[in-house]
């Protein structure tokens, strides 16, 4: 059994996430800095839209929190990351910052952190590592699915509006971290029983939440509804070009689909694509796949009469991901795009 009493995600646990604007905020610095962060590995339960309670774990901001995904880190090339991870659980975990490109070695890793123990990694980011990263636990091949993951954004030194040297520019940025939950896995971890050999996910999240459509309990609550979660929702005026760093922490390969604008597709699995394609649908692969793309906030090009405002979805188009518990369409991995 885990060492501490269960935390409840979706209420107090998530409250600490909701400070600030939600989007990643960044201003450039001329000198490198040390970015210090302490994560607490905590566990608890999260209630799914159909009422089912799921055992989850997270890299949390305090021992009383349960943050899924972890609070993101943003820094720039040349900075030194000083990350302490305190394991509040009884079993061994670890903390790994994945490599930039598919097949790259991890940027940094704590190694094993025994139950009750802690480790600190200190890593100075070399030039050439600007990009989007998933940090996660790879002590087992399934810990990442339990919620032990988060996003790290490394900006090019001295840049505020480009994600790599020469990239198209943006004004705002955020993460969309996707996960897929098979409750049988979470239950087996909770109970200490054999881990299933095959998974069939039943819940699908973006930044740890599912969408809650109009009429559903919690609809419109940014701490519960992925449509209104300020970390996920894209809200802007025309020209508010927003970089979305998409990370797939989950089991399934997904097809990200935006309405109202095509996105400018910059990278796939950490590699800058040879040209920028304009896409309404982009594949975000499993096995820690990732995509960077800019939502341009241009007037919806096919409207007649022309419009500059409106509400639209971003949803995954592999539509199984739009369900919860085998039904409940619209209670899956979806958020809202608001043209203000």
């Amino acid at each position: 059994m885990e060492r501490r009493g269960f935390l409840k995600a979706g209420t107090a646990g998530f409250a600490s996430l909701m400070t600030g604007t939600g989007l990643l905020s960044w201003s450039t610095r001329s000198e490198a800095a040390t970015i210090s962060k302490t994560f607490y590995i905590t566990a608890g339960t999260q209630t799914m839209p159909d009422g089912v309670s799921i055992y989850v774990k997270g890299f949390s901001d305090s021992s009383a929190d349960l943050n899924i995904p972890a609070t993101p880190i943003i820094c720039q090339e040349g900075d030194t990351l000083e990350i302490t991870v305190i394991n509040r659980l009884a079993v061994t975990h670890n903390f790994v910052i994945g490599g930039l490109k598919a097949g790259d070695a991890p940027l940094a890793s704590t190694g094993d952190i025994a139950g009750g123990g802690s480790k600190t990694i200190t890593y100075t980011i070399p030039t050439g590592k600007a990009g989007s990263y998933l940090f996660y636990d790879n002590k087992t091949n399934y810990n990442v699915f339990l919620g032990l993951h988060g996003g790290l954004a490394i900006m090019p030194a001295g840049k505020t509006n480009q994600m790599y040297s020469g990239s198209p520019t943006f004004k705002k940025q955020t993460f969309w971290i996707f996960n897929d939950i098979d409750p049988a896995l979470n239950k087996a971890v909770q109970d200490g029983t054999a881990i299933p050999t095959s998974f069939t996910p039943r819940y699908f999240t973006i930044n740890g939440l599912t969408s809650l459509p109009p009429g559903a309990p919690g609809h419109g609550d940014p701490t519960r509804d992925a449509l209104f979660d300020t970390r996920s929702q894209l809200a802007g005026y025309l020209g508010d070009r927003t970089l979305v760093r998409m990370l797939n922490a989950g089991m399934c390969t997904h097809s990200m689909h935006v309405h109202a604008n095509h996105m400018e597709w910059l990278t796939d699995r950490g590699s800058v694509r040879p040209q920028v394609w304009k896409k309404d649908t982009i594949q975000v692969r499993n096995k820690l796949g990732k995509i960077d793309a800019i939502y341009p906030f241009e007037a919806p090009p096919d409207a007649y009469p022309p419009v500059t405002t409106g509400h639209f979805p971003m949803h995954l188009h592999d539509e199984m991901s739009q369900t919860a518990g085998g039904g409940m369409y619209q209670f899956g991995a979806m958020t809202e795009i608001v043209f203000k």
Binding site: H254, S255, H257, Q275, W277, K279, D280, T281, H317
Partner: peptide, 20 residues
């Protein structure tokens, strides 16, 4: 996805996903 590519992509196979 209804947009010309900036340069022709020559290939013998395409990996695609829902709605592309």
């Amino acid at each position: 996805d209804g947009r010309p590519l900036p340069a022709v992509w020559q290939t013998q196979a395409i990996e695609a996903h829902s709605a592309e």
